[in-house]
Design a protein around this nucleic acid. Structure first.
Lengths: 229, 229
DNA sequence: GTCTATATGATGATAGAC
DNA sequence: GTCTATCATCATATAGAC
């Protein structure tokens, strides 16, 4: 633990972001044996993600994952070598972090400033509302905040992902753009933290549209400000 | 760990919020031996808070605290019985969580709506800007988010503290008040998370007054909204 | 692919000498 | 008040039988 076991999940995200089609024959890679012959591997990843989301990284044990998945602990090592491997595979199997904002196209930059806030909020929150990606996000947020080591890569990841988002929506970069991006990130991070991670009431129970309606105006404030220089 | 060792820091805050005066003869209690004869106890609490803030609750070890404080691990048990005791004492020695918003008086409810946002933001952030209370807050936030068990009491604590705050500033309670409080909490939580815990740039390096200037308008949006029913 | 058995180390906690 | 020695438990990880 204190030996410096950082979790470089930011390494790379291979990921299939929103694979609505039933998985099975993904693009033939290599030619080796198809993984997950009996579905056990998938089962382990699901169990792992559940636990990482609920108990954080250091609170999740290999034994716990094994029990949750109904398999032997040694099997997990067999598949993923170590705990860090399980985490990375579990997260990237459900979510492509780097592509979080890929659905924001250049066309969105043409939106009038008063529409951009809503566009960002809806795009970001859609991944939190989606039950297939939410556990991965919760696991990432919990783990990313657990200590200074993981916080560093988590921070870089947020920075990168939001920087790309901002670059799409506010093409004309000014000196205020970075601060603007920080502020918007902070507000979105706080929202998901309380609504989805901590599940604070009544925020957690609000209808999605209600959240958007309440929240977007406070984001628009920043878009207005950055637009007027 | 999985045996359910929650951290009920919300138990009670006895706390001396800002004991600037050099301790020594605190109000004569009992009559027993004066604690902290050689300052060792204080030393341990400081080291503990530092580690809890940096590595979270589960990432901090008794041995690590001992090493950081330059004392024997057994001494910590002697003073605080167990890890949970160290955490509670370390946090409550520097910060009275329950009194976070006590400086908001009824007079603030008389402020025009457009001034209330700034009042809340400044009050809350002042504890994060203060180096004597910041480590305790970071420790609380990190620990509170580490898993579902601690998240529960953390959430309740945020709820209570902000509920009290809102009750002071928006006396005329409507059906929108709770949602309003949630939203404001979320935005403030996100801000401190990115600026002080994750230290995301450029947010972390912004001048305090700049942060206030950028952030307050997005809070005012909610005050305006709740004011107009 | 699946399991048993085990190596190796760190953890929180305790008892007791000085 | 301070320390040594130690316990029981948990962790990750590995080697190897089937």
């Amino acid at each position: 633990m204190s030996t410096g076991d950082g979790i470089p999940w930011a390494a790379e995200a291979d990921a299939q972001p929103d694979d609505t089609a039933p998985r099975g024959r993904s693009a033939a890679r290599g030619g080796g044996r198809r993984p997950g012959q009996s579905g056990t591997k998938e089962q382990i990843l699901t169990a792992a993600l559940e636990l990482f989301a609920a108990k954080g990284y250091s609170g999740t044990t290999m034994r716990g994952i094994a029990q949750q998945a109904g398999v032997d602990p040694a099997l997990i090592h067999h598949f993923f070598s170590n705990k860090e491997g399980v985490f990375q595979d579990a997260v990237s199997a459900r979510l492509d972090v780097a592509a979080l904002f890929d659905s924001l196209t250049d066309a969105d930059a043409e939106l009038p400033p008063e529409r951009r806030g809503e566009r960002v909020v809806r795009t970001f929150l859609s991944f939190w509302e989606d039950e297939s990606t939410r556990p991965a996000l919760i696991a990432i947020y919990r783990t990313g905040l657990s200590d200074e080591t993981t916080s560093k890569s988590f921070r870089d990841q947020i920075e990168d992902s939001f920087a790309a988002c901002v670059r799409r929506l506010v093409p004309e970069e000014t000196e205020r753009t970075p601060a603007f991006a920080s502020l918007v990130s902070a507000q979105l991070a706080g929202l998901v933290m309380l609504r989805y991670v901590l599940q604070m009431e009544p925020l957690a129970s609000l209808d999605f549209e209600e959240v958007v309606e309440w929240f977007v105006p406070s984001i628009d404030v920043h878009f207005d400000r950055v637009a007027q220089g």
